[in-house]
Design a protein around this nucleic acid. Structure first.
Lengths: 214, 214
DNA sequence: ATCAAGTCTGAAACTTGTTCTACATTATGC
DNA sequence: GCATAATGTAGAACAAGTTTCAGACTTGAT
């Protein structure tokens, strides 16, 4: 856990004092709270500032835009989820099943706070270049979760990393279609299971020319 | 072409007069123009209205929000692209190669107007429930383009449709990562080629339990 | 303890999406 | 043609993200 905390702090170049760290935490908490209530629109910068007991200007010093704030909130939540997921590793036989199980577990967690999920995912996909570093961090966290779920013995091959990238794409996009009411939960499940087949396809020994060489 | 035009008009319940159709077209043109200049942020409703020679209130009568406007712009552009792509069908041997080729061709077209692509894609993923019907139309258009590229003889199976859904997810998400500068064009190409393998995997006769039955 | 630099506060100002209002223009049914 | 409803115009007003600024508070070095 301490290692995780350090990993978060790592992104901020100058070390924060205790009071600053506390402010930052209050802000993120207020952000998640408001997001849980009413999603992206309910996270209003003035309200976040007031709820966190901080001046508006200070909020903007810590997070230079609403999108930055929500992406940071997502980082925070993902960190939680990663440690939670690690406690009970997926039980599937093959990597594909384990990844699908893990993602569906994460999905069910998001379902419990759909408004929060909405705020975070919308911010993530709406982010422009100025938020790239932060979005990249979220992406790396997601990759780590998927690779963890695969439970590989050897380091992943280039092909497997490509598959993971595509799985991440699908995960984000499927989440969006669900959040905007254009896909059912069952549909998301199918999409995830479909894309997870790529893992089996790219397993070492299942090369493109010889899928039957095992 | 006339059939396509009718397909567009189909979404608007009351038939528009000629002058109204002209206004709508001027608005969409102004939108695309401004988007091409500076992306999502450059499409400012006041400027669109002025460039289209229309009052702000009128703009909002035609398109109830900026996102609606940009999604409609995307519909328009996709329509163009679909007819363009149809003129020279992809030459690949198998469906997977044809789809990958088609999507990369579309991608290169978007590259020529990256700001426009930015505006449209950001609007698409930022759209909330109130824009679902319009976003759905865009999704159906994309599906049609992919199915077209596959060049199937028989109607697609449920599995193939799932694969197409995942391809669409990947397409949108990969586009976003490219637009926000977090992935190179080469990376997008790899992702698309990776996901297109799902097509081969789900071809009739390549069932899940017997990939080596050919 | 004190000074300087950096940080935080409170509040106003600015920007841009969206809504509203009062009036002019157009279209439609008789 | 004319009444009337729908549509369009100009512009003010409102909402929320963002910026700015003057002054108060912390902090760290001397």
């Amino acid at each position: 856990m301490t290692a995780d905390a350090k990993a978060v702090a790592m992104t901020a170049s100058p070390p924060l004092t205790e009071r600053q760290e506390a402010r930052r935490r209050r802000i993120l908490h207020a952000s998640a709270q408001l997001a849980s209530r009413g999603g992206f629109d309910a996270v209003q910068m003035r309200e976040v500032a007031e709820a966190a007991g901080v001046a508006l200007g200070t909020l903007y010093r810590y997070f230079p835009s609403k999108v930055h704030l929500l992406v940071a909130t997502m980082q925070d939540q993902l960190q939680h989820m990663h440690t939670t997921l690690r406690k009970r590793p997926p039980a599937g036989e093959d990597p594909a099943a384990r990844v699908a199980e893990t993602l569906m577990r994460a999905f069910r967690a998001l379902q419990r706070e759909p408004h929060l999920a909405d705020a975070m995912v919308r911010a993530l996909t709406f982010a422009d270049r100025s938020v790239s570093p932060e979005v990249d961090t979220v992406s790396r966290l997601t990759t780590a979760i998927i690779l963890d779920a695969m439970g590989l013995e050897a380091p992943p091959t280039a092909e497997q990393l490509s598959a993971v990238r595509v799985i991440e794409h699908t995960w984000h996009s499927a989440l969006i279609t669900w959040l905007s009411g254009r896909a059912s939960i069952a549909q998301v499940k199918i999409d995830i299971e479909t894309v997870c087949r790529l893992i089996t396809l790219t397993a070492p020994g299942a090369g493109p020319g010889s899928p039957d060489s095992a």
